[in-house]
């Protein structure tokens, strides 16, 4: 009996352990489709935590880790647009709705929460997909960010170079956090 109890404790505690998942592989990109040029940047150093019991999710992106095809674009992105010295991080924190931790396979979900970019925090609703396979969870989403909403201003001379809204693509693979 005691042994059974002990075993039970062990099982429970390991289950609880796996309630939190952290990013094993991260891919965040944004794409600006403007008249003169397309601008794309990729960040593979983003961090995210997903609490499947509470359905809570958070991710944190260092703006300086976005890599551009041109070094100069990267400098301008940090110096003039995102002002990364003042606002080094972009952050999302919210809840995942419609997620069932017991279901395997692809499921459509929705995240609602607060997205902070460039010192401005907005309530957002982002649709996405989650897939559980083994001990890994894959989260994918795509959404638009309107630069003006986050006080990111584009000089008039570059209106043809930078789009007013950019497409953000997120692809996270989570592993159990222990």
């Amino acid at each position: 009996m005691k042994r059974l109890f002990l075993f039970f404790c062990l099982v429970i505690s390991t289950c609880l352990h796996a309630q939190k998942f952290v990013t094993e592989k991260a891919y965040v990109s944004f794409f600006s489709d403007a008249l003169v040029e397309d601008i794309e940047a990729i960040n593979r150093k983003a961090n995210s935590i997903f609490d499947i019991n509470k359905s809570e999710i958070a991710f944190l992106i260092n703006n300086k880790d976005f890599e551009f095809r041109k070094s100069l674009m990267q400098t301008h992105f940090n110096e003039k647009y995102l002002e990364s010295e003042q606002f080094p991080k972009s952050v999302f924190k919210g809840k995942v709705l419609g997620f069932d931790a017991t279901k395997t396979g692809l499921q459509q979900v929705k995240a609602t929460g607060k997205l902070s970019i460039h010192g401005v925090t907005k309530d957002v609703e982002i649709p996405g997909t989650i897939e559980i396979s083994g001990t890994r969870i894959t989260l994918k989403t795509e959404f638009m960010v309107v630069l003006k909403d986050y006080n990111v201003t584009i000089p008039q001379i570059l209106w043809n170079n930078i789009a007013e809204q950019v497409k953000v693509t997120v692809d996270f693979v989570y592993r159990p956090f222990n």
Partner: peptide, 28 residues
């Protein structure tokens, strides 16, 4: 067995991330 998950329980998710991503920042 119980001590294990005690550690993570109380902290808010974002502050956990902050801790993980503490890094060197270079001037540019």
């Amino acid at each position: 067995t119980f001590a294990g998950h005690q550690v993570y329980a109380q902290d808010d998710l974002l502050s956990e991330l902050e801790k993980k991503s503490d890094d060197t920042e270079y001037a540019f």
